[in-house]
Design a protein around this nucleic acid. Structure first.
Lengths: 226, 226
DNA sequence: AAGGTGTGTTAAGCAGTGTTAAGCCGTAGC
DNA sequence: GCTACGGCTTAACACTGCTTAACACACCTT
């Protein structure tokens, strides 16, 4: 049995929740059913599901509030809202972007499945898009991994962030002070020394491909060549 | 799976924008859709796309104004304008040069794709052109390297910039004061002395090929012979 | 609670870059 | 041929950046 995809379903109406859960399980999803927003939050933290299906109207914490909390720490996992007809669609529209979708009640199981698959596909596509080519390396930003011909290195968080910013401005000068403010919060002497160290470490990790270089532009910043 | 090419699409008509976006996405482009000029500007700064497709008529900032702003800091990224039939062609023609093109509405997706590829190909060719021949040397501007028969020298940032400007005006006189203002910010006594030093250093690095010379034109500037 | 591992910071000395200084050289104008 | 000026060259200097190692702290495991 292949590892099935984990779904978090939050629906306060017990009958509906149970039907959807069972129906999804016959289609090989693993479903965690929650009956209110707070429970959903706890279960989300514990299970990190691949997709969330959230009723908007729920006790303790509604679907939007929950989504906001989740988005604070997780910009990627897609969320599908279930809304009653009466819910004003402009609120929903605010969320109908960036890995979110919604479905009006009542809905058929077929509709739900189609939308779920659409979201899951998009999310898996994004995986590829999140992989950045740097010369012969491929750099997976969210996974903090740098791969060179199958040879995988793990980057720390700060290394990742720094490399990401360098890669965003590849072949252009990235301002030193800007990066210090963004990653260290302040451009002072000690943070600058710390950044020196990180540049050295990145250079070391990038030297498998000699066509990739981090050049210094004195007094201004760095330039990632690739 | 190669990282797909990032495109910024600015189109205020939502239906058209969405169709084009989706259509391009099926062709393996990554599309950032913006609905007005200001949003496009912000997204441009953040994503640095490989190509911009801009509707000329847009809220907040029209396509031409946006292009002007972008060209101030970025002379390379190609821009494709989408124009209504009514738009006067002389304005368009002003931009129909230097990495720009335009397409009249209504257009077919095929036309758009063809033009986009034409622009992207031209841009990638230019990448190669970043290696400049100077006599027997090859000078890679972004990599700050000067190669003579496999013998590689590293140039500092200022050396690189100076040589680049000399090479741009090869066999013509490059104005002393102009360079001082451009690279040193001001034409004063001390900066002029500093520039003398850099000219000396460049001459030293260029003397492997005796047919390459930096000649002085007394009181006016320098001329790179090659 | 103790020990281990990993991450980011601090420290110290060295290397590279661009600026300043000083004296010399070559050419134009007299 | 002399002078004045602009340009050339070398060396020394200040400052920025580079590198290595040691360190402190948080987190994990037992």
């Amino acid at each position: 049995m292949s590892a099935s995809i984990k779904i978090l379903l939050a629906e306060d109406e017990p009958a509906l929740g149970q039907i959807v859960k069972e129906s999804l399980e016959t289609r090989d999803f693993e479903v965690i059913l929650c009956t209110d927003g707070e429970m959903a939050w706890k279960q989300y933290l514990q299970h990190k599901p691949a997709l969330l299906v959230l009723d908007v109207m729920m006790p303790k914490k509604d679907g939007f509030a929950l989504a906001r909390d989740i988005r604070e720490q997780d910009k990627r996992t897609p969320i599908l809202f279930l809304t009653a007809k009466s819910q004003t669609s402009d609120v929903v529209n605010g969320f109908h972007l960036g890995g979110n979708d919604y479905l009006k009640k009542p809905f058929s199981m077929e509709e739900l499945i189609v939308r779920m698959h659409a979201l899951l596909d998009r999310a898996s596509q994004r995986e590829d898009l999140e992989t950045i080519r740097i010369g012969q390396y491929s750099f997976n930003y969210p996974k903090q991994r740098l791969t060179f011909k199958g040879d995988d290195q793990y980057l720390t968080h700060k290394e990742t962030e720094l490399l990401y910013h360098l890669a965003e401005q590849r072949n252009q000068v990235l301002d030193r002070s800007l990066i210090l403010k963004k990653l260290w919060g302040d451009d002072d002497f000690f943070n600058a020394r710390s950044m020196d160290v990180f540049i050295t470490r990145l250079r070391k990790k990038l030297k498998q491909d000699p066509s990739v270089e981090i050049l210094n532009v004195r007094g201004i910043g760095y330039k990632l060549i690739c």
